[in-house]
Nucleic acid binder design. Structure first.
Length: 602
RNA sequence: GCGCCUGUAGCUCAGUCGGAUAGAGCAACGGACUUCUAAUCCGUGGGCCGCAGGUUCGAAUCCUGCCAGGCGCGCCA
């Protein structure tokens, strides 16, 4: 509030002095209390352009600020300090005014003005439906969902989306793995393919499908098993690559690196129509079941999506072929060496990329282009994708592709989240969906609960790799800062419960008195909430909300220690209760934006 | 080799796109419950902001080079 007022006067002053190129007049909270409640280095920044010493500018501006009657009412004094800082000390009225303003905003305190444009599409998680969510995915789920809530609260129009990679060889392997477990459970020794999925969850899916179809697919799989037994002499074990730890990363992708392209099913399995049909069944149903479980797990984690988009539909609807044809027609794509390429190198990529392979099959990239075209056609004006750091090499080509589709740059924004480093009692632990070695999100939630897990996963910058030691997390969950914040909320709820009804009813109607530094610090913190929201949204940095919530809780706990509410003289009591009420609302909002509950008692 | 991210207290990390004496939590030590919830509060100790230059009134922040760690660089998905 003070910031806006000061900005007005500064603008007037600047235009009167003929100063343009004005940097934003930031009011900072100085570390040293001797420097007032707020300070700005504006004049230092302006000195060069103005051709005057900063202190001279500051004195001049100070005169303007002091002369403004409205500002003079709020600010006790303005001082020129140091090399040219302007320090503001707030007066009594400023605190009452801020509080009146915050109270009037009710539950919506801090919410930004609604901006219907640009319509934003936010895609995140998008885990392949061939295994359970692990904690790495959990980080993107927590981050993406908090970002979504934050963007909406800051005023943006946002829709969330999960892209289902339910097409391609990865899914075939998944289907064959389920088929093998299905056969095994019925007494047929059909081994899981070497490039298949070995996790226990595959057996669970197989058991469900066995209940669904009985032994319907057993004969055909028995034939497969016999055929494999005959020709197994040339099978050689593939070395098991061990990559980094993996969060959005799927190790299986590395392991297939040198593999030959094959059109249909992998070579070991006979490729007749009956086998294909069986595999299709297990793949399709397995994918559905896996997706269902992923969906339920995310919902339990507090994460829901507006749209679940299937990659397969891009292939079956013809959209993929159509977009490639359009790109060829416009000259953005071309034939070379029997393959179709896209001119991404003309738009910042290292080289052009293949859309349609020599063998006629489209690349994953081509499907992604069709997908993003679909997003644009659905009316989205800004596309945000959250990817793991292991996909950052893919960014330039996708940016180029969307630039071509949209006809202008800047439509696609890719946020790269760093990975989660899994540790077990200090030892690095490798993860692989294929081998079924992972710490699942469900495990983490079971160990420390949704609130602590979400807070932990989102409280650090997404640009920072995150170390997670499950054993340590379990032991230290009581130290999770989320409880510190929640406790402040519960304490306030308790005060409100214990307060006389007439006191609660009177809140907001009284003139307010805030004289102590504990009350004033809390008010200043609350006053900055809307700025924090806008800043966190603009920088795609929900972790700032976590930091803010901790600061706010700390300010409250100190206030609580020193300032009694119930039993204080009536005017003071209602003023303080108002402060409690606003604090409670802001804490609850912060926690909600982080997907964390705000309990009334602990 | 090239590209992206990171390097801040013993540990985990903030640091408001260049501001005043670099912050918090945990860990260590010492205090505070007869009062609205002690999951709290108060105090103490702890730092070549990876290293070296540069830009300027001013650098953890911007630029260059180096060092270290993570990730990536397919007609894989």
């Amino acid at each position: 509030m003070i910031t806006e007022k000061v900005q007005q006067v500064v603008d007037a002053w600047a235009s009167a002095r003929g100063l343009t190129e004005l940097p934003a007049c930031r009011l900072e909270r100085p570390a040293d209390e001797a420097h007032g409640d707020y300070a700005t280095p504006l004049c230092l920044q302006l000195a060069r352009a103005a051709g005057k010493p900063p202190r001279v500018l500051a004195e001049d501006l100070r005169a303007w600020l002091v002369a403004d009657p409205e500002l003079a009412d709020l600010v006790e004094k303005v001082e020129v300090a140091g090399p040219g800082f302007l320090n503001f000390t707030l007066g009594q009225k400023a605190y009452a005014k801020v509080m009146t303003d915050l109270l009037a905003q009710g539950e919506e305190v801090g919410r930004g003005e609604r901006r219907p444009h640009p319509r934003v599409n936010l895609e995140f998680v998008s885990v392949n439906p061939n295994g359970p969510l692990h904690v790495g995915h959990g980080r993107y789920a927590a981050y993406g969902d908090s970002l979504y809530r934050l963007l909406v609260f800051s005023g943006a129009e946002v829709s969330t989306e999960y892209y289902i990679n339910d097409y391609g060889r990865q899914m075939d392997r998944f289907g064959r793995s389920i088929a093998a477990r299905y056969a095994q459970s019925l007494g047929v020794d059909l081994p899981v393919p070497e490039d298949g999925y070995f996790g226990e969850y595959v057996k669970d899916i197989a058991a469900v499908l066995r209940d669904e179809v009985g032994d319907q697919y057993l004969p055909v799989l028995r034939e497969v098993a016999e055929s494999l037994a005959q020709g197994q002499s040339d099978a050689e074990p593939r070395s098991s690559a061990v990559g980094g730890t993996a969060v959005g990363a799927e190790l299986e992708q590395e392991e297939e690196a040198e593999e030959e392209e094959t059109a249909g099913l992998p070579s070991e399995w006979p490729s007749d129509s009956a086998v294909e049909e069986a595999v299709t069944f297990f793949r399709t149903r397995g994918c559905e079941l896996m997706l269902k479980s992923i969906r339920e797990e995310l919902a339990a984690f507090g994460v829901e999506f507006d749209c679940w988009f299937s990659e397969t539909t891009l292939h079956t609807s013809g959209r993929l072929q159509q977009v490639v044809e359009r790109l060829l027609a416009s000259g953005e794509a071309y034939y070379k060496g029997d393959a179709v390429w896209l001119r991404t190198s003309a738009r910042g990529d290292d080289k052009d990329r293949v859309l349609i392979r020599r063998n006629g099959r489209p690349t994953y990239f081509a499907a992604d282009i069709a997908y993003h075209e679909d997003k644009l056609e659905r009316g989205f004006e800004h596309l945000i994708n959250i990817w793991g750091a292991d996909h950052h090499g893919y960014v330039p080509r996708m940016m180029a592709a969307v630039e071509i589709l949209a006809g202008r740059p800047g439509v696609l924004e890719v946020i790269i989240g760093q990975l989660v480093n899994l540790m077990e009692e200090g030892e690095t632990r490798q993860m692989s969906t294929r081998r079924g070695e992972m710490v699942t999100l469900a495990e983490l939630i079971e160990a420390i609960g949704v609130d602590a897990a979400r807070f932990f996963l989102v409280m650090r910058s997404h640009d920072q790799t995150l170390d997670l030691d499950l054993g340590l997390a379990r032991r230290q969950s009581q130290e999770n800062p989320v409880y510190y914040v929640q406790y402040a909320h519960a304490r306030i709820a308790s005060i409100i419960r214990n307060a006389p009804p007439d006191l609660v009813a009177a809140v907001g109607g009284d003139p307010q008195v805030y004289a102590s530094p504990y009350e004033r610090n809390l008010i200043k913190r609350l006053d900055s909430f809307s700025w924090v929201v806008q800043e966190a949204a603009a920088r795609r940095a929900p972790h700032r909300l976590a930091a803010y919530a901790q600061d706010l809780a700390a300010d409250f706990h100190v206030f609580y220690k020193h300032c009694r509410v119930i039993g204080a003289p009536p005017l003071l009591a209602s003023s303080r209760l108002a402060l409690c009420l606003v604090t409670k609302r802001v804490i609850a909002r912060c926690l909600d934006l982080l997907g964390v509950s705000a309990p009334d008692s602990m």
